[in-house]
Design a protein around this nucleic acid. Structure first.
Lengths: 192, 192, 192, 192
DNA sequence: GATTAATCGAGACGGTACGTCAAGTCTTGAT
DNA sequence: ATCAAGACTTGACGTACCGTCTCGATTAATC
């Protein structure tokens, strides 16, 4: 059974999400305004609220939507190279969505439901990729069988984010090298 | 030179900071309101703004204040034990300030100046502690001379925070054990 | 020349007008909504706007339509009796249209064009009736030749409406008697 | 006991009421906007809503406030002259408040409570004046003892308003003369 | 019987005003 | 100079209504 009435204009969805991403990139989440989004996207506020119940929900969907154009998983045959390559792609892509997500985490504290959804769609992708790379390394014998794949896979993203949160410095090539040298040295991770 | 007029009531400072911490714990940073703080603390809004220029600085100071009741640095003679012991104390102390800081971290994205200050006072203490522990381990020969102390010191806090941010799970005893086993095994971290 | 396409459903006209009258009676003109009318009449908003260019014209036509079931002009041979009889019929008919018109009168202040039309169709009928009655009285010699027919004819409706607007009391039998006794006493109004 | 806190600025009250009256005079009640009032009066919207719960209440008070500068009751010794003089003063004063009240009556239909208040303060003044004039005329013997003072006193305002509502013509000198000639002729009202 | 053209209900759309709420400032009288 | 109380400006919030505009589905009259 087809839906009744005039169908929603899908262009408006995209225009609104794009406008939200843009404006977050320009001024951050707190400076973001529904009126600004409406104006930038040439969409009425009513149309926005017909789709999203509030600002936060809109922004989360915006970030999710723009996170889908991301880097493919490399497969070089060596864990160190996989990780370096993937991180380098991230640095180059340094899309607005990452900083948007970070700018969002405070607001998400007030809505655990939405926070979970946001984590599931945004962060899970990274974890999946890293875990696959680490798992392959274990299979290849690069890492010992008892390796805690989850923990090792999280090293790179965790340290990268921690650094940006504690020192304010974002991920760059030099840091990638330090990471790789310390935790994924040319020979092996924790073997003599 | 003594200031003229009626001196400030020091009780108000503490009442306000305590109220802020409480309210952040209840509803998160975005739901925090200066009026709510004033009411909860039985303090006038004017008194708040006489002490702190805006909401963010008040909250930062609140978190700082409640972070001073923290764990001392252990010195067991073995890195693994130092780290485990320190983390366990953190878990037991699980004060509201930790989640308050996490809930706050993004609001800081919009104010780099304040973010820096917040980092310096709140995060530095952790980093200093962990780095000292790792440095001692290097001196003892537990870790090889070329070890990137910063990175190794950040492993525990970075992974702990990453986990809480991505999966929503907070630091607990089981996770501490996993951390220790993977990165600081009973024998050594990385053997030359 | 027959119009092409599907013909308009005449039932919708009536349903819409009836719904408008009902809703005005329930909440007054300002609380009246096109969406409410549409829902109450089980008619789409588009169908409404296909028939009337805006809310005001719809309402005016609604009032007009329901004003057509009104009293015939009496002709008893005596002005007092004519007026009393006509007013009594009005009281008994006390249709929703009267109060609807009163509730509407101010909205018309903003649209002189429509106000004129509304006056012509709604009010003129009353005036015509009363003037005819007064004119006959003058011809019969009941009133002197120089009588200002307009003014005398307006006494009853003007005082009735003024009373309802100033004191909130509507026309009733007692008031009709007072009116008749004061201005159209059993003998004559103004004797030369 | 004096009220606590900063007292309300009485200038804001007056500025808001004045702005409301002005704007009603310029565009009528439907075109009136709280934002416009706020802007015109250089007052914040919040300050408006602190004083009045909604637009209608504000406007009613505005009209009431500006209705207090009105004509004094004449006392010429003859009813006809009293009435003519009072009506002429009204014509000259033709303040915005009268048309504002008329423009308001529709909106008042939705709030009977407020409508009553509005009637009591705005219309009662006129009635009191007219009734006093008529009562004096009865005492002087100008009108017979059994005269229905209420009704006779209402003739002038009722016919004036009825005329403006039905024909759109406002009270003017010519109409005053017609009124006086018909109902209050130089000699007597209903005497031979 | 197929086509055409205007209707129908449902509901999305832009625009605009509403009334609420929070941040940060200012003004009382009192301490 | 401080205090509590509370008014003040600014500006965003989320809601509601108006009048317009698509949709797919009906419904006659025409071909």
């Amino acid at each position: 059974m087809v839906p009744l009435g005039r169908p929603r204009d899908p262009n408006l969805d995209e225009a609104a999400l794009r406008a939200a991403i843009e404006l977050i990139g320009e001024g951050g989440y707190p400076a973001l305004t529904m009126d600004h989004i409406a104006e930038r996207a040439s969409v009425s506020k009513a149309a926005l609220y017909r789709r999203w119940p509030n600002k936060l929900t809109l922004v989360v969907e915006a970030i999710e939507a723009f996170a889908h154009n991301q880097a493919p998983m490399p497969d070089t045959g060596r864990l160190r190279d996989d990780i370096v390559q993937f991180l380098r792609t991230m640095v180059r892509n340094r899309a607005a969505d990452v900083q948007a997500y970070e700018a969002l985490s405070a607001a998400l504290a007030g809505d655990p439901e939405l926070a979970k959804q946001c984590r599931d769609t945004l962060v899970a992708r990274f974890s999946v990729t890293f875990r696959a790379m680490v798992a392959r390394a274990v299979e290849r014998g690069e890492l010992p069988p008892g390796t805690d794949i989850e923990l090792v896979a999280d090293i790179a993203p965790a340290l990268a984010r921690y650094r940006s949160q504690t020192t304010g410095q974002h991920l760059d090539e030099a840091f990638i090298d330090r990471l790789a040298d310390q935790f994924f040295p040319p020979v092996a991770v924790t073997r003599a």
